[in-house]
Amino acid sequence: MTKQPSLASLKAKLADVTTPDDPRLASLAADSRKGAQLLLKQIQRRLAKAEAAEQAFQHRLHYERPFWAQGELVAGIDEVGRGPLAGPVVTSAVILPQDFDIPLVNDSKQLTPKERERLYPLILAQAEAVSIGVGSPQLIDQINIYQATRVAMQRAVLGLGRVPQQLIVDAMQIPVAVPQTRLIKGDAKSASVAAASIVAKVYRDHLMATYDALYPGYGFAKNAGYGTAEHLAGLDERGVTPIHRKTFSPVQKIIANQSRS
């Protein structure tokens, strides 16, 4: 009687199964051991999850495909950091190749920090062009956050080094002479915008971690400049830094209180 392979060895051998019609799964299905059947269900769940992710990813290429079919370069643009009390607003423009294939690329807000950090270099490696546009706290105070975001997006597009024929942007109108498709929640609907959202988010998080070292006591590495309790306590105790947005309400109040005292 032939000795059956151990479940541990089976699991190792089947780790590279990528399709439900892999003949090895038929052999596993014929294995009556409870552990073998549990392993089969695990693999089937993994394959189903991967298939769902692939289908969702293909759907996120829906807006790019018609432009690609005409031979056009498409840039996705997104921003991060409109709401914080400190730090710049950061935008990114990304031109993806037609054979782009990273199914996990999705709206950065739906990803964990570890997932974003892992996807960031993969996007940079596969993209045809990537650019960052920054709107400083001083620019935000001068022209308001909405207009500063538009300027930062313009800078990102102009910094690509290649001229896209189409832009897909998350709900904004960018002051550049390029046709634009504006989408509500575009980072969840377009792979190009999703890639830009990840690049902008990781870039800004790294920047805020650097600011945390320069201006300790506000928790910038953890809160990215948003108005958390730690950040507000830091403002009360230490005052306003050069990277704070002086026209934003909590910061304005600190400045007003300091001027009265």
Results as ranks from 00 to 15, higher is better:
A8Q: 12
A8N: 04
S9V: 01
A15Q: 12
V17M: 08
D21Y: 13
D21C: 10
L25C: 02
D31Q: 03
S32R: 08
L39H: 00
I43N: 05
R46T: 06
R46K: 14
A52F: 10
A53I: 01
H62D: 13
P66I: 00
W68F: 11
Q70H: 12
L73M: 12
A75C: 02
G76T: 01
D78W: 03
D78I: 02
R82M: 10
G83E: 11
P84F: 04
P84L: 03
A86M: 04
P88K: 03
V94T: 09
I95N: 09
P97L: 01
F100D: 00
D101W: 07
L104Y: 10
S108A: 01
P113I: 00
L124P: 10
A129F: 07
S131P: 08
Q138Y: 02
I140Y: 00
I143C: 01
I143G: 00
Q147H: 13
T149P: 06
R150S: 11
M153A: 05
G159I: 04
P164K: 12
I168D: 04
V169K: 07
D170S: 07
I174H: 00
P175R: 02
V176W: 03
P179C: 03
T181R: 13
D187C: 11
A191T: 15
A191F: 11
A191L: 12
A195W: 12
A200P: 03
D205H: 06
M208R: 06
Y211D: 03
Y211W: 12
P216R: 10
G217M: 08
Y218Q: 07
G219I: 06
K222S: 12
N223S: 01
N223L: 06
Y226A: 02
T228I: 03
E230Y: 06
A233R: 15
L235M: 09
E237M: 08
P242E: 06
P242H: 09
T247M: 04
F248C: 02
F248Y: 15
Q252I: 03
A256Q: 14
S261G: 13
